[in-house]
Nucleic acid binder design. Sequence first.
DNA 1: ATTAGAAAGTGGCTTTAGTCAACTATTTTT
DNA 2: AAAAATAGTTGACTAAAGCCACTTTCTAAT
Lengths: 144, 144
Amino acid sequence: MSENNVQKIKRFNRFYTRTMGLFNLYTDESPYSATEALILFEISTRNDCTAAYLSNYFLLDKSYMSRILKHFERDGLIIKSFSEEDRRIQHIKLTDLGGEALKTLADKASLNVEGMIDGIAEKEIEVLIESMQKIEEILYPKIR
Amino acid sequence: MSENNVQKIKRFNRFYTRTMGLFNLYTDESPYSATEALILFEISTRNDCTAAYLSNYFLLDKSYMSRILKHFERDGLIIKSFSEEDRRIQHIKLTDLGGEALKTLADKASLNVEGMIDGIAEKEIEVLIESMQKIEEILYPKIR
DNA sequence: ATTAGAAAGTGGCTTTAGTCAACTATTTTT
DNA sequence: AAAAATAGTTGACTAAAGCCACTTTCTAAT
């Protein structure tokens, strides 16, 4: 395993982290953080979502997650309902209001991404996206 | 500008952020955070580095940066020296000790990246890296 | 069947990260 | 020569995230 390869990947990691940071502009005005937006998104896609799943998925402390979810619940973005099979577990679902909140956050994130590719030729954007998909394809097996 | 393209890029952003997070294992034992490691790295490469440059580059508040640098200075990782031309400015340089600290951090980051590509075929790794370089190439003009 | 252990979730407390405003000391602009 | 801008520091504050102890429920091992 070439040390040079590792250096190139580290370089990309620095580059891409910073690039995402630079285009992270439209998120400041929101009452929810980027992390919270990701959590809402994950709740919306995953069904039978639980707090344990989320804290595991995002590598966040379960008590922290508990508080975030309590916050969401108070704001009416989600509802929690105890599982019939296992009464320790509460399934989490997005409410309509939660869906709207997510949409608002997602739209802002989209604006950021549009800013990121604005002015780049359509051909280049295609290459960009193909490259991204290639990376996902190659690394996906590694994240189980 | 296709909305679909934006969705695909957002998807990649989620994927890659999470992937980097999952392989961020060897950094817990260190007294310096990932951000601090990046700052040390930037100091090492950039010459005539200043606090203002760093807080601008990383989009971090200047007071926060000031404290981080003070910490580095106390730990003997950097030295600050007033510029001759402009006496508001202090140039920052890595000490030998700072270089060693950076190397330790960089080695740990390398281990993480090795874990990330471990088990992937050499051919695939080449495609991975080409894709990363393509992305850098396309987005580089956008970050000035 | 009983009990030891594990897992899900919560609450109190602390630490880490980052913001905001005020201030000093220089330099640049007008 | 003011006035405005820039570099950096400090103090007080807020937000993000983690640590630990606890309850409840379930699972596994006797």
